[in-house]
């Protein structure tokens, strides 16, 4: 047990020695914005918020080896609007399905094979699937290759998988994982 711990601390030391400022610029900007929103935006809070937004990522960077990189910010904005519209549609569809006769619903599990590899991208995809029409992501396989999804009313699983891959996975892949990158 103690050997193991020693090993871990050694590894951590190796990471800690090459600390750098602003390891996650995107996260820092978000932290500052949320700090300003939580408190009333004033000059003092701006300074305190900047201090925290730079200091906290600096101190915890050993736990977050992977930085999120956005390759196409405009597409991200477009994607967020797409998801927002889809959430509204999903709500109406699910509401009608709930109010209608529940015997007619064809609930089903199906598995979506994943092309995206980053943890963050998979998280975004799973979140999007849960928030949009009649589907909830239930489990990720241990090798991160397949996502188990439960649909409330599924006519054919193939169509749903195709829809998810085309509509959500493709833009996410372009935004967060550049297709030319070799990871």
């Amino acid at each position: 047990m103690s050997e193991q711990r020693e090993h871990v601390t050694l590894e951590q030391d190796a990471i800690l020695t090459k600390k750098k400022w602003l390891p996650h610029p995107f996260l820092s900007v978000n932290m500052l914005l949320i700090w300003l929103a939580l408190n009333n935006a004033s000059m003092g809070h701006f300074v305190l918020g900047s201090f925290l937004a730079i200091g906290i990522p600096y101190l915890v960077q050993a736990f977050w080896p992977q930085a999120v990189r956005i390759y196409r910010p405009m597409l991200l904005v477009q994607y967020l609007f797409l998801v927002l519209v889809d959430i509204c549609k999903a709500n109406v569809i699910v509401a009608i399905q709930i109010l209608g006769p529940s015997k007619k619903l064809k609930a089903k599990f199906f598995e979506v094979p994943l092309d995206v590899k980053d943890d963050f991208t998979i998280t975004m995809l799973a979140g999007t699937i849960t928030l949009t029409p009649g589907t909830v992501s239930a489990e990720l396989s241990p090798d991160k290759k397949r996502l188990l999804v439960h649909g409330l009313n599924v006519e054919s699983a193939e169509e749903e998988i195709e829809l998810i891959k085309q509509r959500y996975e493709k833009p996410l892949k372009e935004i967060f994982e550049c297709s030319t990158r070799s990871s």
Partner: peptide
């Protein structure tokens, strides 16, 4: 249960 999961998370 898995159908019930859909109601609260969306609506």
């Amino acid at each position: 249960f898995f159908q019930r999961l859909h109601g609260p998370t969306k609506a």
